[in-house]
Design a protein around this nucleic acid. Structure first.
Length: 653
DNA sequence: CTAGGCAAAC
């Protein structure tokens, strides 16, 4: 309308008016009209060129923009604004070549000194990791301000040169330049990376003394530093003391809780954030959704999903990917597929999430189909995709299909198998009972087998009563002296079932003497909008009733033919574990609790942090038959759907 | 009438 008015009034030849029109169209990303105005102009000035070139950059027409820039150089002398625009674009594209040539142009043409341009130059060389060039530019500056020092420090820290960074900070203090809030933030984040809480605390004191604590960047960096250096309490104190929390403060506090495993605390802060009306951003979603996945908190995940739908028009790619994973880990494969179908752009992560979703739910054929569809869609699989698809085959007994994929990784996909892929292959063979094949495969593999490899073999031996191979695997595991106690438990269970109690004792002693602790097993279930946790160290009201109910149930199960496998129950590594054995493994307690506290016929969903043991797997099959309930159990690897006495995993648990 | 630096969360 205004553009039309310009013509009507007869000022369409005015340079300033036309510059204004170009700027306006650029702001609306309407490059075509901006160009049209530019082309009709008879007396273009530097501003006209600058405005259009920047508009092209901002709308992503990079090649066109640089072309225009070259044309401008042939037409008239650029000013410092032109230089800034071109330099920023080169920085963003990490195009050092172009940046260098602009740098050279600046030197040759003797442009006025400009602190911001100087800083962009340091940043340019920092981007390509050229610390020497950074230092050279810095040393030649007419005046080194705080920002130049900061950029130089950051360049060093980003390259991991902490010693040099700290040395430079020493030089900065001896110069007359006072550190500012950016300096403090930079140093705090270096402490975070170095996990140096003591140094971070000193900087906290310094920030208070100089008053920069009130800067949100500083406060947020402190939250991050404390929570990642094992000081969640300090982190949350800082969070509570801030007077104007922004979305990053909230996100930092929430993720700070999650990294240490404090899920309920983190979710409580997320609830407060919503209650206070702070709009969550993409980062909030990418922090909360994985926590929902871990906890299988479907209700919360769904509410996050609906708030995403309410606030955004198009689903962000990483958020969509996180939603697929969330739904599959919450047991809602259907929702995963629906989110997948709704996504307009899909990347390798999207497809891998789908493959892994099918795999977790025991649908190997569907996982393979997704893998092939991915190829048709022109998205090449990566390392993670192969883990997902081979695991999917492994859990569905598709040995040949899985193995042929493993063999084709190198040949057809130019992806060199890593140790985790060899572990998948071992799992594939041994899970279907091909134990001698699995063992010779390990002995012939080109990489040094690690505990994961031998562990995959050993855990399958136990299911197949294959003691000879099991003992060899056990010896290897003990020889590798891993810090992961899960493997020692496997070995200990093997010796216990063979009655070799002295060896069991040895393992227990070695775990203790090395200061390791066994991961306690626990299970959880959501009943009546509340999560209940069962297992050592968790006492829940109602667990006594659950235990009593379980006893009655066991009688019925035995009438149906259930024979408890005492071997598997009674010889665990720690005392609390024995107690747990006596009152039933945590997943059984959680199921019993769910049965008691829900209406007849409703299906239950139970989560466990470790793998379900063989005896529980058998027991739950009986429970599903006797009570005529569908029991969906998520263990560390996958879902088991127990229904009328059978499990969806086909006993490849 | 045009442009711009260094810093925190996934």
């Amino acid at each position: 309308m205004v553009h039309g008015l310009v013509n009507k009034v007869g000022i369409e030849k005015d340079r300033l008016v036309n510059n204004g029109l170009i700027a306006m169209y650029c702001k609306f990303q309407d490059v075509a009209n901006a160009r049209r105005v530019f082309n009709t102009m008879v007396d273009r000035g530097v501003v006209s060129w600058n405005t259009l070139i920047d508009g092209l950059f901002q709308s992503g027409a990079l090649a066109e923009a640089f072309e225009m820039f070259q044309e401008m150089l042939r037409t008239l002398r650029p000013d410092i604004v032109t230089v800034t625009i071109a330099l920023r674009a080169s920085c963003q594209m990490k195009d050092t070549r172009r940046g260098r040539s602009i740098h050279g142009y600046l030197v040759r043409n003797g442009h006025e000194c400009d602190a911001i341009v100087d800083n962009m130059l340091i940043h340019l060389y920092s981007n390509c990791g050229n610390l020497k060039a950074c230092r050279r530019v810095f040393d030649q500056l007419a005046n080194q301000g705080p920002a130049s020092w900061n950029t130089l420090l950051i360049a060093n820290f980003r390259r991991g040169c902490f010693g040099e960074g700290i040395r430079l900070f020493g030089l900065m203090r001896r110069s007359l330049i006072e550190p500012d809030s950016v300096t403090v933030v930079t140093l705090i984040s270096a402490c975070t990376q170095l996990a140096d809480r003591a140094q971070g605390r000193l900087l906290h004191g310094y920030a208070i003394k100089t008053g920069v604590v009130r800067n949100n960047f500083v406060g947020n960096a402190l939250i991050d530093m404390y929570s990642k250096c094992g000081g969640l309490e300090d982190a949350l104190r800082e969070f509570e003391e801030m007077d104007k929390r922004d979305v990053v403060s909230w996100n930092s506090a929430i993720s700070g809780c999650f990294v240490g495993g404090n899920f309920s605390q983190g979710l409580e802060i997320f609830r407060r954030m919503n209650a206070e009306g702070v709009p969550p951003d993409t980062t909030t979603m990418l922090t909360v959704l994985p926590a929902c996945s871990f906890l299988a908190a479907k209700r919360l995940g769904k509410s996050v999903h609906s708030s995403i739908l309410r606030t955004t028009t198009e689903l962000d790619l990483p958020v969509g990917n996180a939603l697929i994973e969330m739904y599959s880990k919450c047991g809602s494969l259907g929702h995963s597929v629906r989110v997948f179908d709704s996504m307009r752009t899909k990347d390798v992560v999207t497809w891998t999430a789908l493959v892994s979703a099918y795999g977790m739910h025991g649908l190997g054929k569907q996982a393979l189909k997704a893998f092939m569809d991915m190829e048709v869609a022109g998205i090449p699989p990566d390392h993670v995709t192969f883990v997902a698809v081979i695991y999917a085959c492994s859990h569905s007994g598709l040995v040949e299909e899985g193995f042929s994929l493993f063999n084709r990784m190198e040949k057809d996909y130019k992806t060199t198998p890593k140790i985790e892929h060899y572990a998948c292959a071992v799992d594939l063979l041994s899970r279907s009972g091909k134990l001698p094949e699995a063992e010779s495969f390990i002995l012939g593999m080109p990489l040094e087998p690690d505990v994961g490899i031998w562990g995959a073999l050993l855990s399958s031996c136990r299911n197949n009563n294959e003691t000879k191979i099991a003992e060899r695997a056990a010896k290897r595991i003990m020889g590798l002296r891993s810090d992961n106690t899960g493997y020692y438990v496997l070995v200990s269970n093997l010796y216990a079932s063979a009655g070799k109690w002295n060896l069991v004792g040895d393992i227990r002693g070695s775990i203790k003497s090395r200061g390791l602790r066994k991961d306690p097993g626990y299970s959880w279930i959501e009943v009546g909008r509340r999560m209940r946790v069962f297992g050592a160290g968790h006492s829940v009201e109602g667990s006594r009733e659950a235990y009593q109910f379980l006893e009655k149930l066991t009688v019925l199960m035995e009438e149906e033919g259930y024979v408890p496998d005492r071997k598997l129950v009674l010889h665990d590594v720690e005392e609390d574990e024995k107690r747990q054995a006596l009152c039933g493994h945590s997943e059984r307690l959680a199921i019993a609790f769910g049965l008691l506290n829900t209406k007849t016929g409703t299906s239950l969903q139970v989560m466990k942090n470790l793998r379900v043991c063989g005896d529980c797997h058998t027991a739950i099959k009986y429970i599903s038959k006797i009570t005529q309930r569908e029991l969906l159990v998520r263990d560390a690897n996958r879902f088991h759907l127990f229904k009328d006495g059978a499990c969806s995993c086909g006993d490849r648990w």
